[in-house]
Amino acid sequence: MSSLRIDDLCVSYGGVSALRHVSLHVEQGEAIALLGANGAGKSSLLRAISGLVCSSGSIAFDGVLLGGRPAASIARLGIGHVPEGRRLFARMTVRENLALGCWDIGATDERMQGVFALFERLRERADQVAGSLSGGEQQMVALGRALMGSPRLLLLDEPSLGLAPQVIAMIFARLGEIHARGTTMIVVEQNARAALSFASRAYVLENGQVVRSGNADDLANDPTIIDAYLGGVIE
């Protein structure tokens, strides 16, 4: 059974349609990438899964239909969402930010230590205000906050946004570790190269529709994809 199955999903914002009849599936333990230009509908797709925007069509997570459920109840089912631009609570400490990631079940020390084990840097920064952290550290907090709820499916919206190449490599290495533990993932990325080398499959969105899908390696070597998303043909 697929972990996530989306059929005929449509999202529109006041008459402007952001997603049109999107269907896709993610298998248990798989990591997939969503590629596309700005405004292609990548973030809208993640927001529809999380219940943050209204959508039509069907989204099923482990056989449970998500349509009409409020965002908090979807999070409780085991879907963690790392939002675009991190959206931390800037005036709260790292620890408080993390605790809010499993607000409904209560933050245990065990969960907190799990995040600190993954990101040692955050242990040192635990009592600092999140707004004072560097971009990379903030991304770690955003990831950690989503992990606090022990998600089975992790939605990552541009985890590389605004980060230095070295930091991006580190973030993806950690994502690899999380994935290796069996967490299913959907990664939205502008940085198509990083996303395609991380994911096993990918979907390409254009104007709210899936225009291509397939094996990540095949897509990474596809001339049209290289031309559109990987900065031209490498000779």
Binding site: S50, L52, P70, A71, A72, S73, I74, A75, R76, G80, H81, V82, P83, R87, L88, F89, A90, R91, M92, E96, A99, L100, G101, C102, W103, D104, G106, R145, A146, G149
Partner: peptide, 26 residues
């Protein structure tokens, strides 16, 4: 309390609170 932390989270960034799985309605 937990409720209080949820309030502060909503005050700081309601969308982020929703992302984090906080029941903002309640």
């Amino acid at each position: 309390s937990r409720l209080g932390r949820a309030w502060l989270a909503i005050r700081d960034d309601e969308l982020a609170a929703k992302h984090a799985g906080i029941d903002t309605t309640r």
